[in-house]
């Protein structure tokens, strides 16, 4: 579905010229406008689950997820309003209360995207009661670990593993608040036959749910700049095989 018509629309009053097949989030980023998100990851299929990138569109009371909404000619998008900030803080409230995010790593190295957003939006405390679930930590993999307490179910790991590495080791089991990330048939990660130990999931994870073992706190930084490159190269390869 390649559409290439050029249209113009506005984000926060700024005129934007865009191709119709780019999402509002992508276009905002290209134009230096920051829209908060936790589940969006460049180069993998958007998920639309975190609801942090919701934006307002003039003429409708409905909110739209910027990561999966395409602009239309003349559209006027607002990314920062009082209402949106309230909702975004509430989303973070819910996430912080859902599992356990009491973490000594991100406080000192500032590398957690969840914490970063809380900081950015000026959160001072969590407004809803903590749910305090009892969740395990999987340290069976020789290089990496998985702490379910830190997981926000953004499924970045699932998508990276499936779409870029091609292993599909990760998926989500269960549903609702009981949903959890699983490797293969809900096995210890170290025993999952499909895992190639490539570590892309760890780099894609926005929190400390997936981490590298044996790193000092300062070294626990995530980097995923290489993903768009891999996705691009993959596209090229798939393109050849079609011919």
């Amino acid at each position: 579905m390649k559409r290439s018509q050029i249209i113009t629309f506005k984000i926060d009053g700024q005129d934007i010229a865009a191709r119709e097949d780019e999402t509002i989030l992508e276009l905002a980023r290209q134009n230096g406008i920051r829209i908060p998100t936790l589940c969006y990851l460049e180069s993998v299929t958007p998920w639309g689950g975190c609801r942090l990138c919701m934006v307002e569109v003039k003429g409708t009371t409905r909110l739209f997820p910027a990561c999966m909404t395409y602009p239309q000619e003349g559209m006027e998008v607002s990314t920062v309003t009082e209402q949106l900030t309230t909702y975004r803080k509430q989303v973070l409230d819910l996430l912080f209360a859902e599992r356990n995010h009491v973490c000594s790593v991100c406080v000192s190295n500032g590398a957690c995207e969840l914490q970063g957003l809380a900081y950015e939006l000026g959160m001072t405390h969590v407004g809803v009661p903590y749910l305090n679930p009892s969740l395990p930590l999987d340290a069976s993999h020789p290089y990496f670990g998985l702490d379910h307490n830190r997981c926000i179910l953004c499924t970045r790991c699932v998508r990276v593993c499936d779409e870029i590495e091609g292993a599909h080791t990760w998926d989500v089991m269960g549903r609702g608040v009981d949903a959890r990330i699983v490797a293969d048939l809900n096995q210890p990660w170290g025993e999952a036959i499909s895992c190639t130990s490539c570590g892309k999931c760890v780099q894609a994870c926005p929190t400390g749910a997936l981490f590298e073992k044996g790193k000092s706190v300062a070294e626990m930084q995530k980097r995923h700049e290489f993903l768009p490159y891999l996705a691009l190269m993959r596209e090229g390869r798939d393109g050849d095989s079609e011919q």
């Binding site: 356990n100 009491v102 001072t124 405390h125 969590v126 903590y130 305090n132 679930p133 009892s134 969740l135």
Partner: peptide, 19 residues
């Protein structure tokens, strides 16, 4: 004034809550 993480989030004392 809630001073510090234990007052603000229950922090370490809250780690017993799943039990």
């Amino acid at each position: 004034v809630s001073l510090g993480d234990c007052a603000v989030t229950a922090n370490v004392p809250g780690m017993r809550n799943p039990f």
